[in-house]
Nucleic acid binder design. Structure first.
Lengths: 107, 107
DNA sequence: GACATAGGCAAGTAAATGCTTGCATATTGA
DNA sequence: TCAATATGCAAGCATTTACTTGCCTATGTC
């Protein structure tokens, strides 16, 4: 899995909104998703393509409709393999921060 | 807290590497951090400024040296307020996905 | 068959991004 | 005091990004 694609896909607020919308109601068509966005259909298509490339969204054709489904796995992996690492030493980092900012060893 | 700044800060691999380096050894100077990066000092400075603006890094001057400290709080908040939400319905989303991809109601 | 609906493809554009180069300032140490 | 070290500031540039407009295709419906 390309973790960089996932981070880049999450970097845009419109794309995060799309994920939110799918989280609220899974399996929506492109047109339905467009309803929430203040941009053209093409722009939404491009955002969704990026999300699909990052494996955050999976699609399936139903006749002339393209249904979009949320895939939560990459989010989990971002946490497990990236954010979690920092959390494990969270207290230590905060101690460092406080120690040095509030007058540490030589100040 | 501006969650968008945090996501944008995390979108670049060089900036994630900088966080990794600070995680490995906290309180490094700009020059020390430059040692790990294949770019000019100015580029690193700009990356660090973005991280600081996103509140992922805090700095403190020690004479002519600028020390950089990791602040894990925004990462925690990204998890709590964003990723966690999706995780709570992770199984449901995966069920939706499987159901529709492997031949659902009408296929 | 004709027409509306759902979506795709591709070129164009303005703004953001990542990085560089050049020069200036401040601290430290011989 | 002079030079080396540590960092800052700002303009310039190439690439990427987000979005648009215009046109084309396929599915469903009267």
């Amino acid at each position: 899995m390309d973790i960089d694609k996932v981070f880049k896909a999450l970097a845009d607020p419109s794309r995060r909104l799309l994920l939110d919308r799918l989280h609220r109601e899974n399996g929506q068509t492109l047109s339905a998703l467009c309803g929430h966005m203040a941009m053209t259909r093409q722009a939404v298509t491009q955002h969704l393509a990026l999300l699909e490339d990052a494996n955050l969204v999976a699609t399936q054709w139903h006749g002339r409709e393209k249904l979009h489904f949320l895939n939560p796995v990459p989010l989990q992996e971002i946490y497990d393999r990236w954010i979690g690492k920092f959390e494990r030493n969270r207290l230590r980092a905060l101690r460092d921060l406080k120690h040095h900012l509030e007058g540490g060893d030589d100040e």
